[in-house]
């Protein structure tokens, strides 16, 4: 199945880590009218049985172009629903562009939905192996990483118990420790991860900083402007799926502010 993103041969630095040219994403949708279920139950049922679900195509991203050079840290700015998360997923190779080209040089890892896909019936340890294998690690490599993961998640006592006995905090801790056990060249973040109780939050921060240090590029989507200022060098402003600005971060933040105020 042709599912790998286009990928140039690995060569020395000056090549951009990410080269994105005019990518668009169109998504087929079902316009199920859930509201009718409450306001007009009769209509909802007839629609269901008469197959009146509307199918359509929605454009989520339109003509986005940018480049991420080694050392660049790109912040994606935009209101809710502007397409930030979708763009990140596209960079991670999960969604493929409907048109345009995306070239990736190096390894990419996105930290999204990190708690999903754990098997609650399996023990914490088994879940570490499962997730490790899914990330493309070999059994041996995971075995070597397990002590570190267990220690970091502070689950030494519970790691042999099924996950459905864990508290929410324990699950988050495990998910975070597992998801960050490999360090990619390009790190994709949908909101900064800060999780757990006070003590764990410090460790998370330390781990995130080390991930950042060891990565050659970052793409971050967040609403937190001060955080973005402290981390990012470049900014890309999205509005309803369109790129309205790409450039230095300060200018991007200004452009975003203008865009917000320009609207009635």
């Amino acid at each position: 199945m042709g599912i790998e993103p286009k990928r140039a041969a690995k060569t020395a630095s000056p090549q951009p880590l990410l080269h994105v040219e005019n990518i668009c994403l169109h998504v087929p949708i079902f316009q199920a009218s859930d509201r009718k279920m409450l306001t007009n139950p009769g209509r909802f049922l007839t629609d269901l049985y008469l197959s009146r679900t509307k199918r359509g195509v929605v454009t989520i991203l339109e003509n986005i172009s940018f480049e991420l050079k080694p050392g660049d840290r790109l912040g994606i700015i935009g209101a809710n629903g502007a397409g930030k998360s979708t763009l990140l997923r596209m960079l991670a190779g999960i969604y493929k562009p409907s048109s345009g080209s995306l070239t990736v040089n190096g390894t990419v890892k996105g930290l999204f939905a990190i708690s999903l896909g754990m098997n609650p019936e399996a023990t914490g340890l088994e879940n570490i192996y499962m997730r490790g294998l899914q990330m493309g690690l070999s059994f041996k490599e995971i075995k070597a990483m397990v002590p570190g993961v267990v220690e970091f998640s502070e689950l030494e006592d519970a790691i042999e118990n099924p996950m459905n006995t864990y508290s929410t905090g324990m699950i988050t801790r495990l998910a975070f420790s597992v998801s960050t056990m490999i360090e990619p060249d390009i790190l994709l973040l949908d909101e900064w991860i800060g999780t757990g109780d006070a003590a764990f939050r410090d460790r998370v921060k330390a781990r995130m900083d080390s991930l950042l240090q060891n990565s050659r590029g970052l793409v971050l989507a967040t609403h937190n402007a001060p955080l973005m200022k402290s981390l990012c060098t470049h900014g890309l402003v999205l509005s309803k799926g369109k790129m309205i600005f790409y450039g230095e971060l300060d200018e991007a933040l200004d452009a975003y502010a203008n865009n917000v105020h320009a609207r009635p």
């Binding site: 390894t107 890892k109 990330m135 493309g136 070999s138 990619p184």
Partner: peptide, 23 residues
């Protein structure tokens, strides 16, 4: 879609390991 580590030397055996173990 394994856009993560060691894409270039992603051995077939490693994938087999993943398939067999997970199933």
């Amino acid at each position: 879609m394994s856009v993560n580590l060691k894409e270039t030397n992603f051995f077939a055996s490693k994938r087999m390991q993943m398939w067999i173990f997970i199933s």
